[in-house]
Amino acid sequence: MSEDMQETMMFKVQKEEKIKVRNVLEEVQAALKEKGYDPINQLIGYLLSGDPAYITSHKGARNLIRRVERDEIIAELLKNYLT
């Protein structure tokens, strides 16, 4: 065997960039508005129930909002409201 075959190869996985809750909410809000939904009502339904069916799949909004935890969304909303 050649010496190259005996060396340990390094594999580094790129960490997914931390998604910003604010950006997610802005994109989801825009998609909901485009489809004619009231973003506040739809987001409340999603946050209370956890059912992603409250969020349109238009522009990938449903998949996008599922990338952040509901408690992260609530924390971001409270942080911005209370400060």
Results as ranks from 00 to 15, higher is better:
V28L: 02
K18W: 05
A53N: 15
A30L: 12
E16R: 14
E16L: 11
I19K: 14
R70H: 03
V28A: 00
M10G: 09
T8W: 11
V68L: 00
D71Q: 12
E7C: 07
Q14T: 08
K18E: 09
N80Y: 14
I65R: 02
E27A: 06
R62K: 12
Y81A: 11
R62M: 08
N41C: 10
L48N: 15
K35P: 00
K35M: 08
G36M: 04
E7T: 06
I74P: 03
I55H: 02
I55P: 00
Y46Q: 09
V24I: 05
Y54C: 00
K59G: 00
L48D: 14
L25H: 04
A53E: 15
K79A: 09
L78D: 13
I44W: 13
L32F: 02
A61T: 03
K12Y: 13
Y37P: 06
N63D: 08
L47Y: 08
P39E: 12
N80P: 11
Q6D: 15
S2G: 15
E17S: 10
E3H: 14
Y37M: 10
T56M: 03
K33G: 04
A61K: 02
I65S: 01
T83V: 09
R66L: 11
T56V: 02
D71K: 13
K33E: 10
R66S: 08
N63L: 05
E7M: 10
E76G: 01
G60H: 04
T56Q: 03
Y46D: 07
N23S: 13
E69W: 07
I65D: 01
K15V: 05
Y54N: 04
H58Q: 04
I65P: 03
L47G: 03
A30F: 09
I74L: 10
R67W: 05
E7N: 09
L47P: 04
Y81K: 15
A30H: 09
Q6A: 13
Q42P: 03
V68M: 01
S57Y: 07
D51S: 05
A75P: 08
K33H: 07
E27W: 08
V28E: 01
A75D: 15
G45N: 07
R70C: 01
L43R: 08
M5A: 13
I40F: 14
E7W: 12
T83A: 06
M5G: 11
P52Q: 03
I65T: 02
R62Q: 12
K15N: 09
P39Y: 13
Y54R: 06
E27P: 05
L82E: 14
V24F: 02
N63R: 10
M9H: 11
I55F: 02
M9P: 06
S57Q: 10
E7K: 13
A75I: 09
K20D: 04
Q14Y: 12
Y46P: 07
I19M: 13
H58E: 03
V21A: 00
A75F: 08
T56H: 02
H58T: 00
Q14E: 11
E26C: 08
D38F: 12
L43Y: 05
A53C: 11
E26R: 14
Y37W: 14
A53G: 11
L48E: 15
D4K: 15
T56N: 03
T83P: 09
R70I: 02
L64R: 03
S57K: 10
R70Y: 02
E69I: 00
Y37L: 09
N41A: 13
F11H: 14
L64S: 00
I74Y: 05
L47T: 01
M10V: 15
S2W: 14
D51Y: 05
M5Y: 12
L43H: 06
R66I: 01
